[in-house]
Amino acid sequence: MKSPPLGYVRAMDMPDVFRLRANAGPDARVLAGGQSLLPTLAFRLSDPGTLIDITRVDALRGIRLVADGALRVGALTTHAELGRDALVRVRVPVLADAVGLIAHPAIRNRGTIGGSLAYADPAAELPAVCVALDAVVIAVGPAGERRIAARDFLTGLFTTALAGDELIAAVEFRPMPGRRTVIHELARRSGDYAMAGIVLAAGPGTPTHDPRPVFFGVGDRPILATRAAACLAVGGAAALAAAQAALDGDLDPPSDQHGGPAFKRQLARVLLARAVNSLIDARDAR
């Protein structure tokens, strides 16, 4: 369980990152929180040669409002920081809700939102939240910044749209007045990766207004369930059952250690009902 021999270099600013990366070659990996990268090294699933530590690059830190009212979350923001940030609580509260489902406190203190997106684990919470909220990933490379919609950023199993010389600078969440978003997941033990999960955004107003259900842990990336969304938008007493049935067309879950496709679809139906009901409860509580 020891990492292979490694080189280590510490970047102090963005030009440093690009220079060190160019020198280190294509196999070198960026080290942020390391909470997924270090286990893969311990298992020797990866042998990057060199790690480029970006944790001291201030340009990748901070949570702030930008010109168009969007909330810009720096890539190095840890899960713990996300969970206790006052702006996040007001502007994008589902991010804080998601943090409570990610691993354990000791891991939340190191793991970062940029790392979670760059790693692109299909069972991870934050990539699904970003897709449900139509967030924008800001990639930065030697040529400058590039804005990529979260749904286009996550291209497959542990795969993203980042070019070899790019890294994530920040994620932006645009303001969505009156819109509510909930997250639910099913895991055998607290802190485990979810067997299946859902992020459901809807509103303003009723939960039937522009619903956006995004599932995680049931595909090779977060899956927007468009057929189920159309059923929910119809509204009425039969909408939920119709949406649950429509999930058969939206989801094609691969088998994993938790179970097969039928099991995963059942979890997805249960999660959809829980998410819809919690949106209704949240509306009734107002």
């Binding site: 510490r10 390391g34 909470q35 270090l38 311990a42 530590d53 713990a80 000791a106 891991i107 190191r110």
Partner: peptide, 15 residues
Amino acid sequence: GVIVRGCLVLAASLD
């Protein structure tokens, strides 16, 4: 000041 997994932190990063 905060708890971490010691096995998921490189000593080299702790200057």
